[in-house]
């Protein structure tokens, strides 16, 4: 299991509120991704699901590193890029299959945030 916890114990004071808010949103984000994953498993529109997960990953990637979760930010950024490339470079179902280990790692990293 990779180290998915925080990189710095204490963020700069002005970021404390942001970090607290980020942690409070982590659970909802995990649940949202899991729900989309289940929907995709049940056969609902894959492209929509990828876009929704990419949107969550985009938000996580935009702040995670700043708040001390560099690895989480990297993983989220990777998912964001993979899912956004789905239309242009390869079919959505191939991207979805290929992304499963990375998505699992992202969920682990997000869950680890909840321990902070």
């Amino acid at each position: 299991m990779p180290n998915t916890g925080s990189d710095h114990a204490t963020p700069p004071p002005f970021l404390a509120a942001a970090r607290q808010r980020f942690v409070s949103l982590a659970e909802a984000r995990v649940l949202a991704i899991e729900a989309i994953r289940q929907d995709i498993g049940r056969g609902t529109a894959l492209a929509d699901g990828l876009a929704q997960i990419a949107a969550i990953a985009h938000q996580v990637a935009g702040v995670a590193a700043t708040l001390g979760y560099a690895e989480l930010g990297t993983r989220a950024g990777r998912i964001d890029r993979m899912f956004k490339a789905a239309d242009a470079r390869q079919p959505a179902d191939a991207v979805w299959l290929q992304a499963q280990p990375e998505l699992e790692a992202l969920l682990d990293a997000l869950e680890a945030v909840l321990d902070d």
Binding site: P12, F14, L15, A17, A18, R21, F22, L25, Q59, G62, V63, T66, L67
Partner: peptide, 16 residues
């Protein structure tokens, strides 16, 4: 920005 966390982060940095 639609992300409330990013808005807080941006505000913090801009203040600094």
């Amino acid at each position: 920005d639609d992300d409330p966390v990013f808005r807080l982060v941006l505000q913090g940095y801009m203040h600094r």
